[in-house]
Design a protein around this nucleic acid. Structure first.
Length: 854
RNA sequence: GGGCGCUUAGCUCAGUUGGCUAGAGCAUCUCGUUUACACCGAGAGGGUCGGGGGUUCGAAUCCCUCAGCGCCCACCA
């Protein structure tokens, strides 16, 4: 088959993917050791971004590699309903239609979003195919599939029965924009400068010891309407006599008591704190200890309620300004100071998070975290990079109860019902499509909330492998590899470990690989607003899927954010074309009907290329076994480009070994397949001697070769390199001849050397003359004229000086008695040999210079 | 307040128990269309490995210290 001059990925990729999929190559073989990985499900409703391309690319490299190595391999794909993320998008749509979520029932909304997502879903899956993931599509799990819900309910029931979930009225992180609560980790804590206002609260019963008021310090004056106490430290002598007295809440007619509580730090601010149990987590705790009223003054929509008339309905910001103005008018602001503090923001809208009281389901997470910590302690899970394990431990050590409830309709409904006559009576029931149910003569109303998405995704590994049902895939649990972004370490990895151990008694995966973010070429975060986003589908359309994968993998280490630009994709594209042309050359030589013989090494180059491939294969295996993708890719790239193309193909133009050429292209394609699946498979399909799929081939075995012959070729290379170097430094573009004396290596490889070094002739002679090549062990001379030689003198002198310097350094090293004693024998021997070679070079250079002087 | 990471060629980055002359891609310069490939070939230039100190026969690598950059976690108003 005649191949086009350049590789055009778009002409082949879709067909190749269809070929793989149709062949069943993505399915587990059912034989051999197990290897499994589960896809972090991409949002079914969104397009893939460059981070997915990296994430999926890395995983697919491991999967293809393991598959070729004979593992019973599965890559389970998924699609995420992405509860909150998708809801935000859908709510925008609703707003466009001038509608609100409150116009519909939960079921109506759920069905509407389902249809909305359904339109997009196929799209995401097509994009994953374009990226080349070799996933078993028949096993795809959508996060709202019935088996997911079934498992999630079973887990919730288990937690419920074991007393690990509880209904609690607690302060939650609340997004007033999206009207739902968040988990702690969904709140962006930002450190910023803020104002601490000191406000005078006057004592109701008049001055005590001449003091008329207590001054509190706050950064959120608008919440003073919700104050139900003022607190001081019990240790604080300044306020000792004020404890138990009452103060006026400014701008209102309410009076509250001054209380003493450990929580207050006498050294901060004024040492007196307003207590607003409904709007601050600490105050909430203080309130519980002192039985304080919880007065909600900020409503769930972010506006003021239960406040004096003029403030009602104001949003928080406006209310703050209005409150400050009113306080100033009354002369109650005692001081303003600027402080550094942290403010929680809604990670989605960028608006401040309001701590509000809400009845929610909480998970007592400490016992789960404890088991996870034990598993980490026992090194049951390996982390790449290893340092992330410490971060995870820290997180698990400080973890607080997890709020499972979300007030959005797009998600898995919480299977809990509340007695209409007794709001403390909750029961577990899965009939979530019923608004009310009758149990034992009592009426129960369902909880309208849904689960936090991470509660279900936290169970992903054992859900997707059907580990609990003992299904077909259950042999793959625990999975081998979990690969995702570093940003998901706490919100996802931690939860999978905790829930996995809790439900299955096993860690959900053995290895965790975390990759950093793909940044733009100037190391900036990619974002739509900056306009620096690289769309993976555009890159694939222009340069091909392999080019993108090669570019993304190159030079990327785990856990590290890394810049990425067009350069790298182009380098990947060029490599694919290189492979293509190697194949083109070999196929031309061998012809369309070629059936290879058993490959046997004959020439020095044959032995050498086998040894090069052996070395590369070792590096690739070792690197991939330890998830060092970039190093594996680098070794693959260089053995194919530098060794196969630049040396072996060139040498084969002189000394051809057809069987070995066929073998070399086979091995090259196999080694490259995980990194560039499409082009390698495309080429494989054009080779006359294959009627199989490369994806299903076995990882290569290297054939026999002689180290001695391979090293001999290395000496030929040395000579060729020296000849090229010297001729390129000589003036003009003349072709020179090589004269050699008593040198069998040159005599035996006469034509090869002539070709590789682009020499005019290579001639044996009794008395060689001209410019002697400074290669240790060779008796070789370039036949240059006396004049050229004279021009070259400076060059010779420079090299002589450099070589002398090298010799000095080497001698210095060898002269040190401790070096001889302590350094490994092999190293010492190598150093000695290097020294000898340098000395030989010096002699040759000196001879040259002597000749010039005559 | 804790923790983590980074600083190596013009740019973006590799460099795994310390060990040949510190590498790659891109960029730069010179030469070259030779039986695949100009998405190419041959060659070259370019680095006090952030500063300082220490351990060692030997340090980009280990230790200390200083400086700069970035990230994560934490309920101090």
């Amino acid at each position: 088959m005649k191949l086009a001059k350049t590789y055009e990925p778009n002409e082949y990729e879709p067909n190749i993917y269809a070929l793989w999929e149709k062949s069943g190559a993505f399915k587990p073989s059912g034989r051999g050791e197990l290897f499994s990985t589960v896809m972090p499900p991409p949002n079914a409703n969104a397009n893939l971004h460059i981070g997915h391309a990296l994430d999926m690319g890395l995983k697919d490299i491991s999967v293809r590699y393991k598959r070729m190595r004979g593992y019973d391999t599965i890559f389970i794909p998924g699609a995420d309903h992405a509860g909150f993320e998708t809801w935000v998008v859908y709510e925008k749509e609703l707003n466009k239609q001038a509608k609100s979520r409150f116009d519909f029932t939960r079921e109506q909304l759920y069905n509407q979003v389902w249809d909305f997502v359904d339109q997009q879903r196929g799209n995401m899956e097509l994009q994953l195919r374009a990226i080349g993931v070799s996933a078993d599509w028949e096993k795809l799990v959508f996060t709202l599939d019935s088996k997911v819900i079934k498992t999630v309910y079973a887990t919730f029931k288990k937690l419920w029965d074991e007393g690990l979930v509880y209904r609690g009225e607690r302060i939650v992180n609340y997004s007033t924009k999206f009207q739902t609560s968040y988990a702690d980790i969904e709140v962006d804590q930002k450190q910023e400068k803020g104002t601490l206002w000191h406000i005078g609260y006057s004592l109701v019963e008049g001055p005590v010891n001449g003091v008329k008021e207590i001054i509190i310090a706050t950064t959120r004056p608008e919440t003073l309407f919700g104050d139900t106490a003022v607190a001081v430290s019990p240790e604080d002598d300044r306020y000792k006599d004020l404890i138990g007295k009452k103060v006026h809440i400014p701008l209102t007619d309410r009076e509250v008591e001054i209380i003493a509580d450990e929580y207050v730090d006498a050294a901060f601010g004024t040492g007196a704190v307003k207590i607003t149990p409904a709007h601050d987590p600490n105050d909430f705790e203080v309130g519980k200890r002192h039985n304080l009223e919880r007065l909600q003054v900020i409503d769930f929509d972010g506006t003021m309620i239960n406040v004096p008339k003029e403030f009602i309905g104001l949003d928080v910001d406006t209310a703050r300004q209005a409150t400050l103005k009113a306080l100033k008018d009354k002369g109650l602001i005692r001081k303003e100071e600027t402080i550094e503090h942290t403010v929680g923001y809604d990670y989605k809208s960028g608006l401040p998070i309001q701590p509000l009281i809400k009845d929610q389901w909480f998970l007592k997470i400490k016992p789960l975290a404890k088991r996870a910590l034990e598993a980490l302690e026992n090194n049951e899970i390996s982390f790449y990079p290893a340092s992330r394990q410490h971060i995870l431990r820290q997180y698990l050590q400080n973890i607080r109860d997890w709020n499972l409830s979300r007030q959005i309709p797009w998600g898995i409904p919480i299977p809990a019902f509340q007695n209409v006559d007794d709001d403390t009576d909750w029961i577990f029931d899965e009939s979530v499509s019923e608004e009310t149910i009758e149990v034992a003569g009592k009426t129960y109303r369902r909880d309208e909330d849904t689960f936090d998405t991470w509660f279900s995704s936290g169970q992903w590994p054992f859900i997707t492998t059907e580990a609990l049902d003992g299904g077909d895939l259950s042999r793959f649990y625990p999975t081998n590899l979990m690969e995702t972004g570093t940003d998901l370490l706490d919100r996802w990895i931690a939860r999978m470990i905790m829930l996995g151990l809790y439900v299955t008694d096993q860690v959900p995966f053995k290895d965790v690989y975390l990759h950093g973010m793909v940044l733009d070429e100037y190391s900036q975060k990619m974002s739509k607003s900056k306009g620096n986003v690289i769309n993976p589908m555009d890159s694939i359309a222009t340069y091909g899927s392999d080019a993108l994968r090669l570019g993304l993998v190159a030079g990327r280490s785990p856990g590290q954010n890394q810049a990425f630009g067009l350069d790298r994709i182009i380098a990947g594209r060029n490599f694919c074309n290189k492979l293509w042309n190697i194949a083109r050359f070999i196929e031309n030589k061998l012809g369309d009907e070629y059936e290879p013989d058993v490959p046997v090494a004959h020439s020095l180059a044959d032995h050498w290329i086998i040894s090069e491939l052996q070395t590369a294969k070792d590096i690739i295996e070792h690197s991939l076994d330890t998830y060092r993708y970039a190093e594996a890719s680098d070794a693959m790239y260089h053995v194919i480009w530098d060794s196969v193309a630049d040396w072996y193909i060139e040498a084969s133009k002189d000394q051809r070994n057809d069987a070995l050429l066929a073998w070399v292209i086979d091995i090259s394609l196999k080694l490259a397949h995980p990194f560039a699946p499409f082009v390698t498979e495309t080429i494989w399909q054009t080779l006359s001697w294959h009627d199989t799929l490369l994806i299903s081939e076995t990882w290569p075995e290297i054939i026999e070769y002689s180290d001695i012959s391979a090293a001999e070729f290395g000496r030929v290379q040395q000579l060729v390199t020296e000849a090229r170097f010297v001729t390129s430094a000589l003036p003009g573009n003349e072709k020179y001849s090589l004269l050699y004396g008593d040198d069998s290596l040159i005599a035996d490889n006469n034509q090869l050397i002539k070709r590789l070094a682009k020499l005019d002739k290579v001639i044996g002679t009794v008395q060689p003359h001209g410019l002697r090549l400074a290669v240790s062990g060779r008796d070789a001379w370039l036949d240059v004229s006396a004049k050229t030689l004279a021009d070259h003198q400076v060059n010779l002198e420079e090299r002589l000086a450099a070589t002398h310097a090298d010799i000095q350094a080497l001698e210095g090293r060898l002269a040190h008695p401790n070096y001889m004693e302590k350094a490994p024998e092999k190293l010492v021997a190598e150093t000695k040999q290097l020294l000898d070679e340098k000395k030989a070079v010096v002699i040759r250079l000196q001879q040259e210079l002597e000749l010039l002087k005559i």
